[in-house]
Amino acid sequence: MFGELGASWDAARCERLLRQHRGPLGGGPGRRGYGGALSPREREVARLITSGRTNREIAELLFLSPRTVERHVASLLRKLGARSRTEVSPGARRTRPG
């Protein structure tokens, strides 16, 4: 808004103050993360795990590489606080706080 009014000095000052108090303006590069919640793809992989599918089968069904499926499995196990695939339940949701 300052820029539209020709007040570039005020705009720069406000941007500097915002950076000092809350970090850089705008979002960072890349997509927004899901934090501790499972992404839609991780939920889909969890559902296929509970139906007894292997990583290779999941990769074929979802048109992904087996390595990508391995990453999704590792991520969802971490988020669920599970140590193995057998601990993933059909209605997989995040089970541990924080």
Score class of each variant (00 low, 15 high):
residue 27 G to V: 13
residue 31 R to S: 11
residue 88 V to L: 00
residue 69 V to G: 07
residue 20 Q to M: 11
residue 69 V to E: 05
residue 65 S to K: 11
residue 76 L to C: 10
residue 67 R to Y: 13
residue 34 Y to P: 02
residue 35 G to C: 02
residue 76 L to N: 14
residue 27 G to S: 10
residue 32 R to F: 01
residue 79 K to T: 07
residue 26 G to F: 01
residue 54 T to Q: 04
residue 41 R to Y: 14
residue 53 R to S: 15
residue 75 S to G: 10
residue 24 P to Y: 11
residue 17 L to V: 01
residue 71 R to I: 03
residue 63 F to Y: 11
residue 72 H to D: 09
residue 55 N to I: 10
residue 85 R to M: 08
residue 57 E to Y: 10
residue 49 I to W: 07
residue 43 R to H: 09
residue 39 S to R: 07
residue 28 G to E: 09
residue 19 R to P: 03
residue 75 S to C: 01
residue 24 P to E: 15
residue 71 R to C: 08
residue 43 R to G: 08
residue 44 E to Q: 13
residue 74 A to L: 09
residue 37 A to Y: 14
residue 67 R to C: 07
residue 22 R to N: 11
residue 57 E to G: 05
residue 86 T to H: 11
residue 20 Q to P: 05
residue 87 E to W: 10
residue 31 R to V: 08
residue 36 G to M: 09
residue 43 R to F: 02
residue 21 H to R: 14
residue 55 N to S: 13
residue 34 Y to H: 09
residue 70 E to A: 15
residue 86 T to A: 15
residue 21 H to K: 10
residue 64 L to T: 08
residue 23 G to S: 01
residue 31 R to P: 11
residue 60 E to L: 15
residue 19 R to H: 12
residue 84 S to M: 04
residue 77 L to Y: 10
residue 77 L to G: 06
residue 73 V to T: 03
residue 69 V to D: 05
residue 23 G to E: 04
residue 51 S to R: 14
residue 18 L to G: 03
residue 43 R to L: 12
residue 90 P to N: 04
residue 39 S to Y: 08
residue 59 A to Y: 05
residue 63 F to D: 07
residue 53 R to D: 15
residue 44 E to K: 13
residue 18 L to A: 06
residue 77 L to P: 11
residue 78 R to V: 13
residue 78 R to A: 14
residue 42 E to V: 04
residue 29 P to F: 04
residue 26 G to R: 00
residue 23 G to T: 01
residue 45 V to T: 08
residue 34 Y to K: 04
residue 40 P to V: 06
residue 29 P to G: 04
residue 36 G to A: 02
residue 58 I to Y: 05
residue 80 L to G: 14
residue 49 I to F: 05
residue 47 R to D: 02
residue 20 Q to R: 13
residue 51 S to A: 15
residue 33 G to P: 04
residue 64 L to V: 06
residue 84 S to D: 15
residue 81 G to F: 08
residue 51 S to M: 15
residue 81 G to M: 11
residue 47 R to G: 02
residue 82 A to H: 07
residue 22 R to E: 08
residue 79 K to F: 00
residue 35 G to T: 04
residue 21 H to N: 13
residue 67 R to A: 13
residue 30 G to Q: 04
residue 86 T to Q: 14
residue 82 A to T: 12
residue 69 V to F: 06
residue 29 P to D: 05
residue 53 R to L: 15
residue 30 G to S: 04
residue 22 R to M: 12
residue 90 P to Y: 06
residue 62 L to R: 03
residue 51 S to L: 13
residue 53 R to T: 11
residue 86 T to V: 09
residue 84 S to Y: 02
residue 56 R to S: 08
residue 88 V to F: 00
residue 75 S to I: 03
residue 35 G to Q: 05
residue 82 A to F: 13
residue 88 V to N: 00
